[in-house]
């Protein structure tokens, strides 16, 4: 079985700070990590590999330094790694990104594609389902449990108010939640192996894709502007009896449309 795990290298957003003067992100010194939902997807793939035997390929799109995230995946136990990296892919929104990744997946071949539900820098949760559409595959998103059942997978799909247990035939695409497992650490032997293995770098010439559908010019959406929310100052403080305090809170919640 061929499993391809799509992953993104992201800045650790819990450490992202805003430059108070320019209002832009300070990226220097911010560690890059494998996106958490993707890392759990990789762990799920590695568990399947151990149980039933599978080849696990990790696929990422990004700048050359995203190589590091792929090497970490190799050190965790992935068999092969492909990095889609080309200036022509740059500036892509989710539509163009998913088009590019889908083209690479066609070339790689797959029985099961696993994507993290969403990346912590963009939080869109769109690329997984869009890849599935481009490849005409069934999708199940928000997956928190996964097991193989013959030529199908049985997954637990979570909702705000419950869950479904869903059976879906391979080939298909799943998007996974970080809570589904605790990803393993890289092993020492794995780290040595990871540097013996190659990360294949694919550019525009390596995949079959219409140039009009990729990168900035293939993207239907544009960022018009970005800005930071104004810093917050202390609000009003009332020294009142409890009943009046409760009334003030309820009034404020009404104004905020919470109730």
């Amino acid at each position: 079985m061929n499993i391809v795990v799509c992953m993104k290298q992201v800045p650790d957003t819990t450490e992202v700070k805003i430059d108070p003067v320019t209002g832009t992100l300070i990226r220097e010194g911010i560690p890059s990590i494998i996106n958490p939902d993707d890392k759990s997807g990789l762990e799920a793939a590695l568990v399947l590999k151990e149980r039933v035997g599978a080849k696990v390929t990790v696929l990422s799109m990004g700048p050359p330094q995203a190589d590091l995230a792929l090497r970490e995946a190799l050190a965790m136990g992935a068999d092969e790694a492909v990095l889609l990296s080309d200036r022509a892919f740059g500036g892509a929104d989710t539509w163009a990104t998913s088009t590019t990744i889908a083209a690479a997946l066609r070339k790689l071949g797959f029985d099961l594609i696993i994507c993290g539900r969403q990346a912590i820098d963009g939080d869109t949760a769109q690329v997984g389902p869009q890849i599935a559409e481009h490849l005409s595959l069934p999708q199940v998103s928000y997956v928190s449990e996964l097991e193989l059942a013959g030529d199908s997978v049985v997954v637990k799909r979570t909702f705000e108010d419950g869950y479904q247990r869903i059976k879906v035939k391979l080939p298909c695409l799943l998007t996974t939640l970080k809570d589904m497992n605790s990803p393993r650490y890289m092993s020492v032997a794995g780290i040595f192996d990871a540097y013996k293995k190659d990360v294949q770098v694919w550019g525009l010439a390596d995949i079959v894709v219409d140039e009009a559908n990729i990168g900035l010019k293939g993207s239907p959406t544009r960022v018009k502007k970005s800005f930071t929310k104004g810093a917050k100052s202390a609000g009003k403080v009332y020294e009142v009896d409890p009943k009046e305090g409760a009334r003030i809170i309820v009034e404020a919640l009404k104004e905020k449309f919470v109730i």
């Binding site: 957003t13 992100l25 239907p220 544009r222 960022v223 018009k224 970005s226 929310k229």
Partner: peptide
């Protein structure tokens, strides 16, 4: 919001 709510972005979709 993006970057965990650290930044806000205004997006347009002008030609589709």
């Amino acid at each position: 919001p993006a970057f965990g709510g650290n930044i806000m972005a205004t997006i347009i979709c002008p030609e589709h």
